[in-house]
Amino acid sequence: MVSITLNGQKMEVSADKSILEISRENGIDVPTLCYNEKLKAFSGCRMCVVEIAGRKNLAASCSTKPLEGMVIQTHSDKVMKSRRDILDLLISNHPKDLFTQVKVGNNKFQEYAKEYEVLEGSYEGEKKNYEIDSANAAYYRDPNKCILCGQCVSVCDQIQISHTIDFLGKGFNTKVGTAFDLPISTDNCRLCGQCVSVCPTGSLIHKQLANIEPEKIKKVRTTCPFCGTGCNFDLNVVDDKVVGVTPIEDATVNGASLCVKGRYHSDMISSKQRLTTPLIKKDGVFVEATYDEAFDYIATKITEIKDKYGADSITGLSSARCTNEDNFIFQKLFRAGFGTNNVDHCART
């Protein structure tokens, strides 16, 4: 433990934590664009700089640890000017639609620009002019909006462990891309979308959520319906329709990770192919029916068959896709209702 003074407050803090972590633990909102607590510190954006008494240069708080007696200012004039300069430089080299595009995901860049009142860039000069990569069905990649924070590269390396993307080129021409700078596809990417989740600028955009205003979204936490891992995520709902899936930061099993299926499947929920009315086959053709008619038909037929052939002539397939509650009542219908143990499901496929 060491003693420091943080924004005028004396405190004892762990010497192993960064000044950023300590600040946030004490409720001080130090802005970051490249920092992600689940990833190794990248120290690239410089938004988290703080002023340390006696030091000439501002220090990146994400990668600076406290020393005994340090006096630290997180929002001094010098710090604020530096942050505005950084935003000014970034915005000067950014497409004009920063504030007109719908805020996508966690667009912290847009938030900070408003918070620090840097609404326009003051530097004239050459701008990036890359093609937007929209070749895959899951997400867009607009390198012109990339501020090279490196979060996508780190999450791909450290969490997804796919190493699909990296920094390409040098200096002004640096960009994030794939090997040989090919478009994202199933040949080079698992399309898990982890990079989309961490992008702070709207350079990476989930296609299903691209035009949805975040304020309209209601999030409902649930469990993924595919493999047996049991990832949790938020269904994003607008006007009683599921419009997409976003991860939950602290899900027990999967943290903020999702796979391609979990993240992008949700358009099937409102598929036009959904059945909406009971069907009864008459002369080989399905005819629409009411539930009442369907249940009566079933009850009559089951009674006939049970009377004639016994309960063991009735069989049922429950499902590893359905809930525990649905499975429980289904097997109960067979055992306690029909009077047979003829109930199984595809446990083994």
């Binding site: 595919f226 429950s318 590893a320 525990n324 499975n327 499901h345 446990a347």
Partner: peptide
């Protein structure tokens, strides 16, 4: 590693003959 979201549960619930 169970293959389906609720194959564990369906077995637990007795959806087995």
């Amino acid at each position: 590693l169970r293959g389906q979201n609720n194959v564990q549960g369906a077995c637990d619930m007795g959806a087995l003959p």
